[in-house]
Computed example of a mutant assay.
Amino acid sequence: MVLPERVERSFWIDGDRLRSEPVQGAELVVDGGWLLPGLVDVHTHPGTESRDSPFDDGVLRKHLVEHRDAGVLLVRTPGTAARMPGWVDEDPELPRVRSAGRWLATPGRFFPGFGRDVGEEELVRAAVEEAEASAGWCKVIGDWRWGEPPVPQAVLTAAVEAVHAAGGKVAVHCQTAEGCRNAVVAGADSLEHGMHLEADLLDRMAAQGTALVPTLSVFAAGAGPRRAGERTAARDAWLAGWEASPGNARAAYEAGVTVLAGTDSLPCGTVAGEAAWLVRAGLPAEAAVGAASWSARSWLGLPGLVEGAPADLVAFDVDPTVIPEALAHPSRVILRGRVVA
């Protein structure tokens, strides 16, 4: 059974492409079960394991293999400590990658030296440069600490307009109400995290196609330590934002906003846990699974399971839209036409 269409269909693989007609000499690798387009993590940062460790090719490969073995066959990397090396796209053993160059951080708005530090007056040029040097995306740190101003609205708007004019797209890190508002009004293509996102922005997001990547699982993991920490205004604001985040994700979905699954955490290959959090937030199970599969692939410009599509697919013994926890346990993983797990 093929998802999301819920129809019985047979596929053959010809090289790295799916075919609906028999291919001579084909070997049966999946018989029955449920077929999904390869899973997708739209917010992951492979290549480094801490702010104190440099971007490393060996670590990058390790992280991408972790994604692949879990059935995550397409990743978007919205910001890394270095531009994605060219060998990643050439390696048939690794997931397909949509990179966004280095994080773009204006003064005081990120970990110093971890991304590309630029002045506000340089942001427009830098955003275009990173988009053109990557897979067409760039990532702007739109805000940082609570109680401190985000990137000015006019500056962020100019950056988004310049990247769009160059044919690229912009992801914006935002966790404060003002930062979220600036990103939406600027016309950003995606809000990363969206903590403190206000409900009156949702219709505009839906109308202009701004997606929300709420990264619920990483916030859920950090909530306990935050609650146990010293009570400060920043800590209380963070917790308030986290407590509202699942409801925001549900409200965004109900308003017609594209809500997608991104982990923003280690280990890699855990997007099934993010999909589970979307279900817990109140999204229908099919929408949550789609956020980590067919919906995310379509949003990133790749087709699902259709004639001539890339042969990137995962098989399951049970329907993951009925039993979402099954998403973490594919029975087969096929990347570029080859069985890899």
Results as ranks from 00 to 15, higher is better:
339 V>L: 00
120 E>M: 05
229 G>D: 15
163 V>A: 01
320 P>Q: 04
161 E>N: 11
237 A>C: 02
233 A>G: 07
228 A>D: 13
45 H>Y: 12
198 E>K: 06
63 H>C: 12
113 G>L: 15
268 C>P: 01
38 G>M: 01
159 A>T: 08
322 V>Q: 05
271 V>R: 08
54 P>A: 10
141 I>M: 15
54 P>L: 06
248 N>K: 12
177 A>K: 00
5 E>T: 06
235 R>T: 10
183 A>P: 01
61 R>M: 05
313 L>V: 05
245 S>L: 15
201 L>C: 07
204 R>H: 04
200 D>M: 00
41 D>Q: 03
14 D>K: 06
122 E>R: 00
154 A>N: 03
315 A>K: 06
293 S>H: 04
46 P>C: 00
121 E>K: 10
37 P>D: 07
10 S>R: 15
56 D>W: 15
14 D>Y: 00
318 V>W: 13
281 A>L: 06
17 R>W: 04
18 L>G: 02
180 C>N: 11
296 A>V: 01
238 W>C: 07
126 A>Y: 00
159 A>E: 03
189 D>P: 03
124 V>A: 05
159 A>S: 13
236 D>N: 12
171 A>N: 10
232 T>N: 04
25 G>Q: 01
14 D>W: 02
217 S>P: 07
133 A>V: 01
61 R>A: 03
73 L>M: 08
228 A>R: 11
220 A>I: 00
4 P>D: 00
119 G>R: 10
298 S>W: 13
18 L>Y: 03
326 A>R: 13
110 F>N: 15
133 A>E: 12
82 A>V: 10
113 G>V: 15
182 N>H: 15
271 V>L: 14
70 A>T: 12
88 V>T: 04
97 V>I: 14
272 A>I: 04
46 P>I: 02
147 G>K: 07
252 A>D: 01
166 A>R: 09
336 R>C: 04
287 A>L: 02
253 Y>A: 09
140 V>W: 08
76 R>C: 07
303 P>E: 10
339 V>I: 05
215 T>V: 14
265 S>P: 08
192 E>G: 09
339 V>R: 05
199 A>R: 14
268 C>W: 12
48 T>F: 15
38 G>H: 00
339 V>H: 08
75 V>N: 07
307 E>V: 02
312 D>G: 04
258 T>E: 09
183 A>T: 12
281 A>C: 02
127 A>Q: 04
308 G>C: 09
223 A>Q: 13
118 V>C: 03
188 A>M: 14
82 A>K: 11
307 E>R: 05
200 D>S: 08
183 A>W: 00
214 P>N: 09
231 R>T: 15
39 L>S: 06
196 H>D: 08
59 V>Y: 08
221 A>P: 06
170 V>M: 13
10 S>P: 06
323 I>N: 09
106 T>K: 03
12 W>Y: 11
265 S>R: 11
206 A>E: 12
299 W>M: 08
89 D>F: 13
294 W>D: 12
161 E>Q: 14
